[in-house]
Amino acid sequence: MIIAAIDIGSNAARLLINEVKIQNGKPEYIKLNLLRIPLRLGMDVFTLGKIGEEREKMVLDSMKIFSDLMKVYKVEHYRACATSAMRDAENGNEIIEKVKNHANLTIEIISGDEEATLVYENHVAEGLDKDFAYLYVDVGGGSTELTFYENDTMIYEKSFNIGTIRLLNNLVTDDNWKEMKEEIKANISSKKQVVAIGSGGNINKVFSMSKTKDGKPMSIAYLKKAYKEFNDLTVEERMTKYGFREDRADVLVHALKIYNFVMHWADINKIFVPKISVADGLIHNIYERVSGEK
Rank of each mutant, 00 (worst) to 15 (best):
T234M: 00
Y242T: 11
R238F: 04
V262A: 07
N204G: 06
L223A: 01
R245S: 15
K213S: 13
S208F: 05
K213I: 00
S219Y: 03
D250M: 14
M209H: 12
A266M: 05
V262L: 06
N204E: 14
F207S: 09
R245T: 13
R238V: 12
V235Q: 05
D214V: 12
L223E: 02
N260T: 07
L233N: 02
T212W: 01
H264L: 11
S219G: 01
K228S: 14
A249E: 04
S210N: 06
Y227R: 11
D232K: 08
I268M: 10
K241M: 12
F261A: 10
E237W: 00
Y259L: 13
V262D: 08
K213H: 07
A226K: 11
Y227Q: 13
L256S: 07
G215K: 10
K257Y: 03
D267K: 14
V206W: 01
N269V: 06
Y227D: 05
G215Q: 10
W265R: 05
F230C: 05
M209T: 08
E229K: 15
K216Y: 10
T234D: 03
Y259Q: 13
W265N: 02
R238K: 14
E246I: 08
N231W: 06
F207C: 09
M239D: 06
F244K: 06
L252F: 00
M263L: 11
R245H: 11
N231E: 14
S219N: 04
S210Y: 07
K225H: 03
I271N: 02
M239C: 09
K225F: 03
D267Y: 10
M239K: 15
V273F: 01
N204F: 04
N260M: 00
D250A: 02
E237D: 13
K270N: 10
I258P: 08
W265M: 05
L256I: 12
I220M: 13
L233E: 09
E246M: 07
N204M: 05
R248K: 10
K225L: 05
K211H: 13
I268L: 09
K213M: 07
D214R: 14
A255W: 06
E246R: 15
T240H: 04
E236G: 03
D214M: 10
A266Y: 02
D214E: 15
M218Y: 02
M263S: 04
V235L: 00
D267W: 04
D214L: 14
R245M: 14
F272L: 12
P217I: 13
V251L: 07
V253H: 01
E246N: 08
R248Y: 04
N260S: 01
L233Y: 02
F261W: 00
N269I: 08
K216A: 09
D232G: 04
M218A: 01
V251Q: 00
K257T: 01
N269P: 01
N231Q: 12
T240L: 02
V235G: 00
D247P: 13
R245P: 12
K205L: 15
F272H: 15
H254Q: 06
E246G: 00
L233F: 04
D214H: 12
M218L: 14
V253I: 15
K224R: 14
I271P: 01
R245V: 07
Y222N: 03
M239W: 00
K224A: 12
Y242W: 14
M263D: 06
M209R: 15
L252E: 01
D267M: 10
I258H: 06
